[in-house]
Structures are given as structure tokens and as C-alpha cells.
Amino acid sequence: MQLYLPIADLPVNVFLILAMGAAVGFVSGMFGIGGGFLMTPLLIFVGIAPAVAVATVASHIAASSFSGALSYWRKRAIDPMLALVLLCGGMAGTVLGVWTFTRLRSLGQLDLLIALSYVVLLSGVGGAMFWEGLRAIQRSKHGQVVPLRRSGAHGWIHGLPLKVRFKRSKIYLSAIPVVAIGLIIGFIGAIMGIGGGFILVPMLIYLLRIPTSTVIGTSMLLTLVTMTFATVLHAATNHLVDVVLALILMTGGVTGAQFGARAGQRIRGEHLRLLLGLLILAVGIRFAVELGIRPADLYTVRETTGGT
């Protein structure tokens, strides 16, 4: 069934988009991530303009992270104080991201930036995750037990001033790195159309040593607020959020996520990380190849104004 997308300005097959939403939802439910880094590229590959894809996926992530955040809230797995401090940076980062997005769009370099950020970020994070997962599997084969946290190994981050007590996470930490991380996530989230959970969670665990019990829930809350905010900002400044597309994605996404979550519980942690790393790496490489090979058409045409 063909449906016309009012903002993306092209007809699409509803079932194709629904299936994409469900597939990404499945993966995101399985790994406990927002799935923006898969959704945005898929939409771009289908032919939707990168700018519209980024802006629309923001609303889709808001939806999926809200249902996630709600269930973590009920389990009391969200640290409100930590979320608040992260959000201070996150909101500022989102504003900065949307502003950069608008500037680059008028310069005609937005698509390049989106592609480049995907290559750098996804190859880096995916590669690291893949490598880490591979080593973890090898270690478990040899029967070694790895301590997840070395006690007393506090880095320079833990020596910074402005310390705040995060009660639910049972941690006493400077607010500066927390705000900085929020800022980075908000910024790249707004530009790339990703929630940033897959970067935020490792950052919080490995850099700030926040216990895993509150990390995922808190990161979902941050994703929820920054992405809701990004949706509103993208709609208000660039008029690029396609509500019809968003609705189809959400419907597929939230349904797929439920089945994914069940599937994820049956797979072992290291394998899950290995798979996720591989997936992220694959998307990154796909973008890199796209940039490197000579495009089929060197020219592009875009409408700049409504004319007279």
C-alpha cells in the first residue's frame, strides 16, 4: 500500500517502513538501545532525505525510549539526580546540534557531515565493542574470571571539583564530566538522529564508573528528554519532521522492541555485545564505502525556496 509522506514529499510503501520499524525495534529491544543509528541510515538508503530522516527519527526514539524509561522507573532503576545533571548538558548540546544542523543545511554540507559522523562514530564504537566482545568470549573459554571493576582505579575524572552526591547510584562524583557527556550526546544526537544510548552507556560505565543498575534507565531518560526536545526544535526551525513517517516507525518500532527484548534474554552477554559491535561496525563501513566510491551521479538538485 502506497502512502504519501507529506514532509519527505515522496510516496512510500507502508509495509516496507512498518517492517523496517519492526526490525529496528527488534534489534533495539534485544540490545536495550534506541536504534536510531540503524533507523536513520535505513531511511536514507530507502531514499528519504538525510535531513528529514534525522529529524523524524528523533521523534521515533522519543517514543521507544519513553516506554523503556517508564518500565525502568517502575523498577526504580533511574537516578533522578544523575539524569538532571546529564540533562543540563544534554539540552545545551541539543540546541547547539540543531543550530549546527541548520547552518550546514544551508551550506549544502549537511549530508556529508551526517555521513562522516556515522563513519567515525560507528566504526570507532562498533570496532571497540566487537573487539571487547571477542576478548570476553576468549577469556570465558579459557575459564578466566575478569573483574568488571578494579577497585581503587580512579582516574583523573574522579579528582575534579564540584562534587555531587548521586544517591541512587551510590556514587560521589564531580558534575563537570557528567554535564560534558550530556552535552556531547545531545549534540551528536541532534545532528545524527540517534539517541546515543550505545555511546552513553559505555561512557557512564567505563569513564564515570556508575553502577550498571542505574545506567540503562538513566540513559533512557536522557535520550527521552533530548530527543523530545530535538523533535520540537527540528520541527520549529527546519520544518523537517514527518509526522506520518514517525507514526509508522513508532508503530513498528514499539511492537518489534517487545519481541526483541524477549529474544535478547536468551543470548549471553558477551555474544550480545559482539553482535551489536558487528552491527554498528557494518553500518559505519557502509557509510564509509558510500563516501569513498565515486557517486553514480556527481550532481544533485535541491529546491531552495518555494519560489513565487
Binding site: P6, I7, S59, H60, A62, A63, S64, S65, F66, S67, G68, L70, S71, T228, T231, V232, L233, H234, A235, A236, T237, H239, V241, V243, V244, A246, L247, M250, T251, V254, T255, A257, Q258
Partner: peptide, 29 residues
Amino acid sequence: FVATTARQHGLLYGVATACMGLMAGWMAS
């Protein structure tokens, strides 16, 4: 209607879309 609203009342449209997203998430939960 959607296209016109998105152009002329961007902020309102954005808020409405965000609300729709939250509703969808809430319903799913």
C-alpha cells in the same frame, strides 16, 4: 493539512509530534 501546519506552525507541530511519540511509548508500555 500536515504539510501546511508543519510550515506555518512549526513549534506547535513539533510539540504535537513529540506528544504523539510519548503517547505511543506510553501505550506500548
